[in-house]
């Protein structure tokens, strides 16, 4: 079996799946009820399945030379991304970082132009943590009022942060690695460290939600760990045209959600597994995939 990856975005993937032109699709948003019931001609009467398969932490990376530790809350991050906080020694920043010798240099936010799942995660975080100053947006593009995003590719963003004293950006953990200093973020009044262990704690304490039939969601609990992350989902049909395809897709879904699959994901893409209850609920949905010929 071979899998052809098409980096076209989740919307294209979902459309392809509901048109019967893809066997599964991936995206960073759990399907809503109307989308999940779509695609009945290609996917059978029950439409689509949506399950979480990975959690990818998102960090606020910065370049302040020797200064490695920084604390930000939603309001400060929103002020920085909207260009309202322009100096690192801004009094509000200093108040949040007692004892940190913040320099009097410009804050240089560097953002990716194209829509991305990281941007969507940050939008959601700020809409929750800075409700007064950040628009209630969960889109994958930066809302109006954000500083100008200049970089075409995320690799360009990373390079520019490396090259620019005072730079700050948001990146996923695979790119951050050990290359950048990353800020602690505040969730519901509690500062949490960026890191796998902290996010694992947020995942473990997070709820498994199934408010829409055949849609499983993983929530992250910010009071227990670092909860700014991209939630990767995969979408499947409930039914396929023949046994062979249904069996292959089922086997793919089971493989992705298996312990080995999740371990591979950690190694190769630095993503973390959903919680055990969430994985069990997801597996139940995947194992129910069937074919028209049954």
């Amino acid at each position: 079996m071979s899998i052809a990856y098409s980096p076209d975005g989740a919307e294209v993937g979902k459309t392809a799946l509901t048109n019967g032109l893809s066997y599964f699709a991936a995206g960073d948003v759990a399907l809503d009820s109307s989308t999940a019931s779509n695609g009945q001609s290609a996917c059978g009467r029950d439409g689509l399945i949506s399950v979480p398969v990975a959690v990818v932490p998102v960090g606020v990376a910065f370049n302040l030379g020797e200064i490695r530790s920084l604390q930000l809350n939603g309001s400060l991050l929103s002020g920085i991304l909207q260009g309202k906080i322009t100096k690192w020694n801004d009094p509000e920043l200093a108040a949040a970082n007692p004892g940190v010798p913040l320099p009097s240099i410009d804050v240089v936010p560097i953002l990716e132009k194209s829509p991305s799942d990281v941007t969507r995660a940050v939008n959601k975080y700020l809409a929750t943590e800075a409700p007064g100053s950040w628009p209630d947006s969960s889109g994958s593009e930066w809302p109006s009022g954000t500083v100008r995003a200049n970089e075409d590719k995320v690799t360009d963003v990373a390079r520019k942060v490396d090259d620019t004293q005072g730079a700050i950006t948001v990146l996923d953990t695979a790119i951050i690695g050990s290359r950048f200093s990353v800020a602690r973020l505040q969730f519901g009044g509690v500062y949490q460290d960026f890191g796998n262990e902290s996010t694992m704690a947020a995942i473990a304490a997070g709820e498994t939600v199934q408010s829409v039939p055949r849609v499983v969601e993983q929530r992250l609990d910010g009071s227990k760990g670092y909860a700014l992350a991209v939630l990767e989902n995969q979408y499947f049909c409930t039914r396929y045209g023949n046994d062979a395809t249904a069996s292959l897709v089922r086997s793919w879904g089971e493989s992705v959600l298996s312990r080995q699959g999740q371990r591979d994901a950690v190694v190769y893409s630095s993503s973390l597994p959903p919680s055990e209850p969430t994985t069990a609920a997801a597996l139940k949905q995947v194992r129910a995939i069937t074919s028209d010929k049954r």
Partner: peptide, 22 residues
Amino acid sequence: EGTSFGHGVHVRVPAYIANLHA
């Protein structure tokens, strides 16, 4: 609309033909 993405135009054909890239 919606059939052209990724590696090209997506169509529905017998499996032995669809899998010829293998």
